[in-house]
Amino acid sequence: MLSRVAENLYWLGRYVERTENIARMAVVEHDASLEGAGAGGIWDSLIHATDSNEAFAAARAESPELTESEFLLLSMLNPGSLRAIFVRARELARGLREYISREVWEEVNGLYLFLAYRKQFVASDVHELCTETQRRTATILGLFDNTVLRDEGREWFRCGVYLERADMTSRIVDAKYHILLPPADAVGGSFDRFQWIAVLRSASAREAYQRTGRGEVEGPLVAELLIFSRDFPRSLAFCLQALQRHYQQAAAETPKRRRARAARRVGILNLDLDAGDIEQVVDDGLHEFLDDFQARLIDVDRAITEDIFRAAPFHPERGGAAEGGQ
């Protein structure tokens, strides 16, 4: 398929998934800003997870009355806000209309209009805005599976979804651990548990945690579920396995030497997750582990982009590069 279309489908998957994650995290942050006293700034973990510390400081300097929730959800001053991310998703979808189904397009456009026509924003809107966004992004993913042809493009879309999901889950775990790292004596206390419950909720994992018989909520067990579980669909291990499967399908038609680098990187990441365990991760430092994981995801993304989406033109049947054009 067209390289540009493949790349845009991959990013459509990433942006839709990121939108959903921001919405989910925002509900938890919003609740935490109302209930429970505590360490760490309000909304800090979401600001951290979306890499928008500096952007927020700058936007605050510009308009002091800007709230964290507005900045993170609806502000177009923040290129990482929920709305700004989804505007990009919708722009991509607009350029992919010949590829995606009408049903998917209408749902994408519907969420865009829902976010775009919201002029006033007050704190009490957070729940409605975010749950509606979650519902609609879930619909988009579902419709994509049920109304779009299952060809190479769908596999690239899925690659984007799973790579982004792995990245966001790692950020959810890391944001809490990094920012809300309690003093040593508080570990294991009720405040600590409150934070880890928030992590579970941010990853839609609270029920999964209980159903897998992990019992009382404890940090290492939460991290284990979100990193190593083969069954929980937002865990790093689950996402990387899915990414590997979808990437194999997506790149099946691509000549071997163009698809190899990304395949190798995903494969090694999967082997490392297979061989790892939570005790080792905690001993070596959870934050360091997640940091390294995110850096390796960036390498995967770079390999896909450089070797496939933006590869120099080549003639597959002649095995040579193009001579004219550029």
Partner: peptide, 13 residues
């Protein structure tokens, strides 16, 4: 390309 033929850039070449 230099063969005066139009090609499109796809993921498979």
């Amino acid at each position: 390309d230099s063969d005066d033929t139009v090609y499109l850039r796809s993921t498979s070449g």
